[in-house]
Design a protein around this nucleic acid. Structure first.
Lengths: 141, 141
DNA sequence: CTTCCTGCAAAGAGTTTGCATCAAA
DNA sequence: TTTGATGCAAACTCTTTGCAGGAAG
């Protein structure tokens, strides 16, 4: 797993530092979406001392490199590992889990939009908010 | 048009004030998405004096009443008139225009998600970013 | 008249930046 | 050794809130 993370950093042309490895492993291994503050707290709790600014800078750098994707949850920026620039996912508001959709149902629809509305599509997001099966069970209790 | 706006306010149980009429008419007549700051500037320019806080409070109230919808554009909250709680639109980054989609292509897909992933869907957003036909022409010049 | 709304200013939250130090390549 | 990253604190931007005065129903 550590190798995977190092490869990601290397491909992005970013130096391999402890801070970046920690942050990435949280997101990659956990498969969750987290805010800068959440990451900061999680690592602080583990006794890893470093600044909040580093978290913000690291997340921004990783997003620019296409390793992470960003979305807004409750007014906060939340980041998650986006394998291969994937942008179609289920976001659980219970545990923060990110479930990638196997395929984007929008692709063919986007082409229709281009034709029907004359709209030049430069981006799109298709996010589904809700509870994953595990959180669903907890709710029922 | 003024009547339409007054009806909207009345149905929401909100008092009809000049400020609210101004803000609503900007969004309803213009059919654009605007940030609080943009609304504030636009009305300030017309010599309508009032506070930025009023814009924020008005937008929040109108959103809670389901008259407006909110989305994030470049880290800012942007509001637009959402006829009948419509949440599927094309957002032009050129002129801010909002084009409503005639139908949500996601509806049947959401049901498939519920079944396939066991995910309890509580909300979704499907936004397509790009340039509307008019802005497209300007780009080409 | 009573209730709700407004404007101002101050506070708050989240995020970014400057700068000196420090670590990776 | 050179370049890029970190940590701290201060700065910034967007948004919210408290309060006294004012308008709508």
């Amino acid at each position: 797993m550590k190798e995977k993370i190092d490869v990601l950093l290397q491909n992005a042309g970013l130096k391999r530092t402890r801070q970046r490895e920690w942050i990435l492993s949280l997101l990659v291994e956990g498969d969750v979406h987290l805010t800068a503050e959440q990451i900061y707290s999680a690592l602080k709790a583990k006794g890893q001392p470093f600044g909040l600014a580093t978290v913000y800078r690291t997340l921004a750098a990783l997003e620019q490199s296409g390793i992470l994707s960003k979305t807004e949850v409750d007014g906060r920026q939340s980041y998650y590992y986006a394998e291969g620039g994937h942008r179609h996912q289920l976001l659980c508001t219970g545990c923060g889990k990110v479930i990638l959709l196997r395929e984007c149902p929008a692709e063919q629809f986007l082409r229709a939009v281009e034709a029907e509305y004359g709209f030049a599509v430069t981006g799109h997001s298709f996010e589904i908010i809700g509870l994953c099966p595990d959180c669903r069970k907890k709710e029922e209790k």
